[in-house]
Design a protein around this nucleic acid. Sequence first.
DNA 1: CTTTCGATTTGAATCGATTCAATATCGATA
DNA 2: TATCGATATTGAATCGATTCAAATCGAAAG
Lengths: 354, 354
Amino acid sequence: MAKGTVRLADVAKAAGVSQGTASNVFSRPDVVREEVREHVLETAKRLGYAGPSLTGRLLRAGKVNAIGVAAVEPLAYFFDDPWARALLAAVSQVCDASGTGLALVSAKDRQTLDWNIKSALVDGFILLCVEGGEKLVQLTRERQLPFIALALNDDDPSIASISVDNLGGAAVAARHLAELGHKRFGVLATELSDDHVGPVGVAEIERAIYSTSRDRALGYWQALEAFGIRRENVPIYETTNDKPSVEAGLDFLFSAPEPPTAILAMSDNIALLAINWLRARGLSVPQDVSVIGFDGVPEGGMVEPGLTTMAQPFAEIAQRAVKAVLEDAVPVEREMIDVTLVVRGSTAVPKDNR
Amino acid sequence: MAKGTVRLADVAKAAGVSQGTASNVFSRPDVVREEVREHVLETAKRLGYAGPSLTGRLLRAGKVNAIGVAAVEPLAYFFDDPWARALLAAVSQVCDASGTGLALVSAKDRQTLDWNIKSALVDGFILLCVEGGEKLVQLTRERQLPFIALALNDDDPSIASISVDNLGGAAVAARHLAELGHKRFGVLATELSDDHVGPVGVAEIERAIYSTSRDRALGYWQALEAFGIRRENVPIYETTNDKPSVEAGLDFLFSAPEPPTAILAMSDNIALLAINWLRARGLSVPQDVSVIGFDGVPEGGMVEPGLTTMAQPFAEIAQRAVKAVLEDAVPVEREMIDVTLVVRGSTAVPKDNR
DNA sequence: CTTTCGATTTGAATCGATTCAATATCGATA
DNA sequence: TATCGATATTGAATCGATTCAAATCGAAAG
């Protein structure tokens, strides 16, 4: 069952033609006379030839016809994390259309990741930089293949990247809630710096190392201050985007003397966890508390009530990213993409305003 | 930014060593004197050498160190379908542990699939045979690489495959409900034959072409008949595992004069859709209707109430499948794996028994 | 009976590494 | 000083295909 040992040369010899002709039979069938072609194909079948070996072909062509998607996470991340999943589904679609293969590359520890990136058989990489982005970029650079970084938390302009307008999007989200009449807010943040969970103040935000989270916070502030709400009065809790830290964050926010009526979550994942927590505590969404997320993952539209969120245009991001990698036409400048407000059932006018 | 044109030979020449030594510097650094090694590495860096090209290495080694997962579905299926996702997450975990790469291979139309399978750079395949399994197996066979079929709807013993005990599992599921006291059942089936949706009778089940669905039906019957419920009195509706067909199925089942108090769903996906439908109709689960699924996808544990289901041991399936492919030790016989009943909140004693 | 042209076919070079038998080097031992 | 071993390095063969300039063939044109 293992790969047969029949080579193209064997087929050629058995069929009594040159190796060049035999090769043409498989890769450019039109140039060889039908009679000969059929004879060669027949011989090939008789010998159990499995078709031109990819590696041989590859060696000359130099193209693999596949792109790699990489992240500093366990492989299962691609199937577990809602954002990664939504993005990959979109990337898949684009790849499908262009006949490009998809390889998943990842690892949690640097050593393995290094090796995995070095040895992935791909023509280029899409980097999911949610965490450890710099590391990822650096490793990928060494490989000297085209790559594009998504959600990069770094302002280095020499790195080709596509990101969403975090600041603007966050501002729209906060404005949406403020316009509904909310006055007391609570923010559940994605990671601002490594290895930290818990309440953070203005100073911590300003020197956050992850620009995605920082910009979202700045966007919230900017919009809220236009409604006369000072940033010092908006409690922010930094989570690690998982259940325990989100619940700790909610414990914190709702233990305040005047708990928030609106939650600004920096990811849909956090928002969905928050909604579950609130419900379990007997608080209804959106009657008692409004929740807005960020990302626009499909799950947000499938729960009851639907999650109001700032949706990323996954299809467009995927389109551009795949194109950039495939054509090695990485954008000279960093591309910035807008997010759009999607209003569903998880936000409403606050109770005391009705 | 494109792949540099610096070859190992160039580095060797520039460093004044033989190509053999240069090769050893990269692939067997321990055999070359430190002094020489450093000099070569330095030269390589100076020239901008990107490290040994994978294709060159590959050509000799013959191993890619990656496995492909294939399905007759659009690529996005891997990220959208709960069962596929659960399985892939498990496969990922195993691959991670053994440093194996993962490539996704798929296509909806035969032509593309053919090409994709032929050109995937992998050492073997795991086939997701939920649909179009035979086609998939046939195509993969031509590639002459080790492969193993999962969820194969075919009894051909010459195809190495791992499947779960559908008949036994279904029997356990039905028995669980019958023991709770249910008397009136409705079955929402996964596909029994191509291009058919709607109510099916005993005869159709017996000549179903998809053995997975057939076996589950047979299992239900077997258990129910032990409780004195005749198979003719158990309405079965064939769905295509998607929302419209499941809802049509529920419309059918609940338009009966004596609607069921228990739903046997052949997939968790169907079960979850069913629960949503029931709730929207004002029927509460499990008070008014009990629902049991099949598969044990993670989502089932994250909804409220939790879904009672027959759980597949994804980790074990993945483990065996990856191992079989990697070691080309495909089982001589078809492997059969047990499923286990996981009782959560979606099943209970029927109303009229309390 | 040549020429000429187009369509096929051939044979050898090439892609970029790894591998291994053969050789070179050098210090230690007899 | 000659010999032996261990270690390091070399050079050529090899993996399995593609590619392209040159050779061949047949038929049509002169």
